[in-house]
Design a protein around this nucleic acid. Structure first.
Length: 480
RNA sequence: UCCUCAAUAGCUCAGUUGGUUAGAGCAUCUGACUGUUAAUCAGAGGGUCCUAAGUUCGAGUCUUAGUUGAGGAGCCA
């Protein structure tokens, strides 16, 4: 038996025609009105049961959470809450949901905290909030692929298991097939990884950048979009141990081109969400507005969700060099009044979150791209400027999120790159394949990494990154 | 990893100065009602007060340690 997605029926004009719908009961009011949701949209379809001519035993099984198949005709609704509804001819229960058991879960029809929903991540997708978030997540993922495909980028699948331990982006998770109780050992007692599956030590990737660079220097413009793993002991609402990262890399592109791409790309995917996820965004906006009513004024969102997204799409990101930013911060009120925990005194200091927040949320009140950072606080592969002390790095900072994007123009000069690696004690042998790109036809090239979950955070207006990925992984947590 | 705060019914919370049988709303169940929209009305059931130790005649309440959660910081995307 075929069935029709609820999202289609809600905008259908096929009045009096018969349809079958399948979904989960969200509520059953007055022994008569089934609010049915099938995940195709946030909106429920009202199905009106003729309770006087229906087996009471069957009616009793129409409970919140149950999976049902309903056949009936599409009619204009007599009630005020919806345009159309189904006049039920037949109800079939596919899966019962015992109310006494269900009331112990977050499926019970009442408000739940996000923390409680997180504990039952396998059920939370059936709530309005998480249905909306996860539909948006899916649409944003599609928009990312669409953007790059439309603009001549190739999708490169960089490895998830990496044999390189010099990616330099953080602590790594080891991948091994050795028996942890009894690993093979060398004569000196250390573990003999030459006996391991790959014949060497391997890890989960912390970034596809280095491999991405090699592909950009052959395919021209590429992007990667895949899972990334960091074994950092980070316990914040902005970090995950397993997250998805978008990393474009472009040959013959300098830092300005890189910043142009980051801005254009972010605007495109946000605009895609605005145009294609209106119902879900409207719901999340209302949810945020309600939440804000119970918060002190200072913690409330500056503007409603969709207005905020439009503002991003319609306005230019502010581009500021690190040196200019330091000047702004040094002369800022909080710095003069000693409100910063880490006062800004001289050039060269690494910016703390409080400084980034001040620039983005107080001073410019829009996304900010900071560029040309001091060389000594950035990674070895970033291109050294003529001044000899700054590198062509850039960070895109977003209000409420912090660093959405981190990128740079890459150091294409072999001798300069080798010098920096030597200074940081990075093995040339280990990265010989990477250095080959600089030996054979090296060229100006740039790229960046965008944390996908941080983008989803911003677009949904959520505040904890653990709520925008189906099964969050963070220290002490790998349930499900 | 560090700092701050919290943990009481399925959920959200109240619980006075340490004192009798730990309460409310929602949810669930039973009945009534039947064009409802967080349905409504009446009634019922439901508790390892996070764990352990301690102080005390007596601990949900005080002390210590631990566990878990939240917010902030660092690391970053």
């Amino acid at each position: 038996m075929t069935h029709t997605p609820i999202v289609e029926l809600l905008s259908s004009d096929s009045i009096h025609q018969e349809f079958t719908v399948k979904g989960w009961v969200r509520s059953f009011r007055a022994n008569q009105f089934v609010a049915l949701n099938d995940g195709s949209t946030i909106n429920n379809l009202q199905c009106v049961v003729d309770f006087e001519n229906t087996d009471p035993a069957l009616l009793k099984r129409i409970t919140v959470g149950a999976a049902v198949a309903i056949t009936g005709t599409l009619e204009e609704s007599q009630g005020g809450g919806q345009r159309v509804e189904i006049k039920v001819k037949e109800v079939e229960i596919e899966g019962d949901a015992d109310p006494e058991e269900l009331k112990k879960t977050i499926l019970s029809p009442k408000r739940h905290t996000l923390e409680k929903l997180r504990e039952q991540a396998h059920l939370r997708v059936r709530t309005n909030t998480f249905g909306a978030i996860m539909r948006l997540r899916s649409k944003l993922s599609f928009a990312i692929h669409e953007y790059f495909n439309k603009n001549g980028y190739y999708h490169a699948h960089t490895p998830i298991i990496t044999g390189s331990d010099a990616e330099g982006a953080g602590e790594m998770f080891r991948v091994s097939a050795l028996d942890p109780e009894n690993p093979p050992r060398k004569e000196d007692g250390t573990i003999d990884y030459s006996k391991d599956f790959f014949g060497k030590e391997t890890n989960l990737t912390v970034s596809g950048q280095l491999e991405g660079e090699t592909y950009a220097l052959g395919l021209g413009k590429i992007y990667t979009f895949g899972p990334t793993f960091r074994a950092e002991n980070s316990n914040t609402s902005r970090h995950l141990a397993e997250f998805w990262m978008v990393e474009p890399e472009m040959a013959f592109c300098d830092l300005d081109g890189n910043m142009d791409l980051a801005e254009d790309f972010i605007k495109y995917v946000i605009n895609y969400a605005l145009e294609n996820c209106q119902d879900d965004l409207a719901f999340l906006e209302e949810r945020q507005t309600k939440e804000d009513q119970s918060k002190p004024a200072a913690e409330r969102a500056a503007m409603p969700l969709r207005e905020k997204l439009h503002f991003i799409v319609d306005n230019n990101f502010k581009r500021v060099s690190y040196t200019e930013a330091i000047d702004i911060l040094r002369n800022s009120k909080p710095n003069k009044k000693k409100k910063f925990k880490y006062p800004i005194n001289e050039w060269g200091a690494d910016l703390q979150s409080e400084h980034e927040r001040f620039l983005v949320e107080k001073h410019f009140k829009c996304p900010v791209i900071l560029f040309d950072y001091p060389a000594n606080i950035k990674a070895f592969y970033m291109r050294l400027n003529e001044d000899g002390k700054t590198v062509r790095a850039m960070d895109v900072l977003f209000p409420g999120i912090g660093e959405m994007v981190g990128g740079s123009q890459r150091e294409e000069r072999l001798d300069v790159l080798k010098e920096k690696m030597a200074a940081l004690d990075i093995s040339e042998e280990e990265l010989s394949w990477y250095l080959d790109t600089r030996k054979f036809g090296t060229c100006t090239h740039s790229g960046f990494g965008l944390g996908f979950e941080r983008l989803v955070l911003f677009v949904t207006g959520m505040t904890n990154i653990r709520d925008v990925i189906p099964y969050p992984r963070f220290p002490g947590h790998a349930e499900f």
